[in-house]
Amino acid sequence: MADATMSNVLKKSGKEIHASWTRDLAGNQSAGKGRISATELDQQTAEFIKLLTAASEHATAGDISSAEFKPMRDFLDGVSRSRVAQGFSSDETASFIFSLKKPFFAALRTDAGKDADVLADQVWRATELLDALGLHTVKAYQKSREEVINRQQREMLELSSPVVKLWEGIIALPMIGTLDSARTQVVMENLLQKVVETGAQIAILDITGVPTVDTLVAQHLLKTVTALRLMGAECIISGVRPQIAQTIVHLGVDLQGVTTKANLADALALALKRTGSSLKQ
C-alpha cells in the first residue's frame, strides 16, 4: 500500500525533512521574522510532522475529514488562530504547509530511487494530502479572521452608544459615526432601557459626531424620537450642523414636531427649563 510507504518515509527521514523544512521556512519568512520565534516555529513543524506520520499510518491519503486526521485538524486550527493573532496574511499561513512539499518530495525521491512510476504516484498522493491540509488551514484562518472582525464590530457597537445622565431627569446620548439600521436599533434599545432605569423625562440626542444625515438616517432618528414619545419621554435633537440642516431641508425630510437645537448647551438649557417648570407645579 502506497500510504505505508509515505508513513515509512516520514518515519525514516522525518528528522531530515523537519530540519530542511524549518530551514526553508526561516529563509522564506524573512518578512514574518519577529512575529514568530524560531523555537515556536520549530515546535509547530515538529508537531505537524509527528501528527502527519501518525495520521498517514492509518488513513487514506487525501481524505482529511476522517477521524484519524482529527488531531491534525485541531492542530491546524490552533496554528491558524495564532497566525491571525500574530498578524500573518493568509498566503503566509498557507505557505507554512505548502513549503513542506520540497523537503518531503526530496525524501520520497531518495526512497523511490530510480523507479519513476512509483515516485510519480507517491508525489501525487503527497501533494493531494498536503493541498487538502493547506486548504483546511486557509479555511481555519479565514474563520478566525471573521471571528475577530465580528468581535470588534460588537465591541464598537457597545462603545459607540453611551447614555449619559446630564441632570436629574435628563439623559443625553452623544452619537458618533455613521448611523445604520443595526446601530440605530442598538442605540434605540439602549436609550429606551436607560429611560426606564433612570426615569428620565427628557432625552437629548446629540448628532454632532454624525458625519452625514441622509433620508435613512433621518428616518432612524424620527423612529427613535417616536419610540421615546410613546414611552412618555421627550426628545431633543442637538448638534445639528449648518450643512446637515441644509441637507435635511433639501431632502424634504419632515422634522416637524421634533425639537432641534444647534448645540448641546442650548438643548440642555431647554431641557432644564422644561423639567424646571414641571417641577414647580
Binding site: 436599533q185 434599545e189 429611560v195 419610540a227 410613546l230
Partner: peptide, 20 residues
C-alpha cells in the same frame, strides 16, 4: 394618558408604523 410602555413595545409600535 398611556403610561408605562415597555421599550420593546415602543420599538415594535414604531416599526409597525403606529406612532399613536
Amino acid at each position: 394618558i398611556l403610561v408605562g410602555m415597555q421599550p420593546a413595545v415602543a420599538i415594535t409600535l414604531v416599526e409597525l408604523g403606529l406612532s399613536l
